[in-house]
Design a protein around this nucleic acid. Structure first.
Lengths: 205, 205
DNA sequence: GAAACGGCTACACGGTTGTGTAGTAGGCTG
DNA sequence: CAGCCTACTACACAACCGTGTAGCCGTTTC
């Protein structure tokens, strides 16, 4: 896409920050690491972004803008779900996941946007639920868990899921999970009934 | 269960460490914070556990032993799934989740154990899958995502899911998700076919 | 009763972190 | 050419981290 050196220093710093934060998390990434990776002094980082938090805000904003841009492009010319999924660079996805887990404003906004998107999607399908909001929120969390724990999944199946063969296994398994009921109707009824019971117990106290 | 002061200092330190690490993560928790929370000097922490990593190992071990103890007890006298789920204190669950995300040995062991448990469960049911290992791994990650992102879910649905009303909404939604197919059979077939296509493309290169 | 030991504290040490300050090089404007 | 602004570096600083050391105090042991 773009080589390291033909970017402005400001852009290089932002780029390096996103990569490192996506890998290690914001807490574990020092401004000196970022400056080294970008090939500049740590002072320049401060000069451009004011502080570490200022840099993080700039990264949040840029990533969010970039992702919405990529997604609207992919959506316009998407053949299938996987093509759209592959359109967004792994770096940016990882960055958002980290941000969400660390509780940054950008992460929260991103999560809420995904929930809203899910809720809208539910309305267009024939999925039945008594609580669309909760349904969408839980579903979003489930999906994100798959990416947050990708290192764990990779180790468990003995194959790197960021590479095609492992990714295929993961996606196939997820299709299997979401296309077939995991618990039967009678067990589901039983579970919902148990939930009602607990709810009633709590209400009495 | 047990008040803070009637424990040995060693146990109080371990307890405080588990609580703080569960809340903030190991990286963001200092030994001075732990010592303060336990009401002892930071030197005593070192005296008992050697180093910060030594303390963390001790916590990992203790939590794992405690959880297996609780679960085997709950399993022996379990009426339903939710009772067993409620048996384990939130602190311990959060601690394990943090450990898993940080990539500690205890977290890895716990994840692998859950995957294995899931794989065994699959074998006893009539769930159809071509790749039980991947199926169990992904399912485990999905389930954990729900707990990792509980703060996000709480915010999205406007209710704390660690408290009964919110928890009920979350559990009901998850039952709905896992008891009804999310994508229809024909769309699922289409997705799997698309995956095969991608796999073939990759193999050619 | 003296020696020894374990629980426990106080304090100092390098190293690292985010931040602040002073200063240089180079292009633009008057 | 002088002035100035922006990009950029080098260096110092205070705070905080995990760690190391010395020592106090009550109990046990002989």
């Amino acid at each position: 896409m773009s080589s390291q050196s033909d970017l402005t220093a400001r852009a290089r710093i932002r780029d390096a920050a996103i990569t490192l934060i996506a890998e290690r998390g914001a807490q574990a990434t020092t401004i000196r690491d970022i400056a080294d990776a970008a090939g500049v002094s740590s002072g320049l980082l401060r000069h451009h972004f004011g502080s570490k938090e200022g840099l993080r805000d700039a990264c949040d904003e840029w990533v969010q803008a970039e992702l919405t841009r990529i997604r609207s492009n992919a959506l316009a010319s998407a053949q299938d779900v996987f093509a759209a999924l592959r359109a967004a660079p792994l770096r940016l996805q990882s960055y958002v996941l980290r941000s969400t887990m660390d509780g940054s404003p950008a992460g929260e906004r991103m999560f809420d946007a995904m929930v809203q998107q899910g809720e809208d999607w539910i309305a267009t399908t024939d999925v039945k639920t008594d609580d669309p909001r909760a349904y969408a929120a839980v579903l979003t969390a489930l999906k994100m868990g798959m990416f947050i724990l990708r290192d764990q999944i990779s180790r468990a199946i003995g194959q790197d899921i960021t590479e095609p063969p492992g990714q295929a296994r993961m996606l196939r398994a997820s299709v299997e999970i979401f296309s077939r009921p995991l618990v039967g109707p009678e067990l589901a009824e039983q579970m919902l009934a148990a939930l009602e019971r607990y709810g009633a117990e709590e209400a009495e106290r």
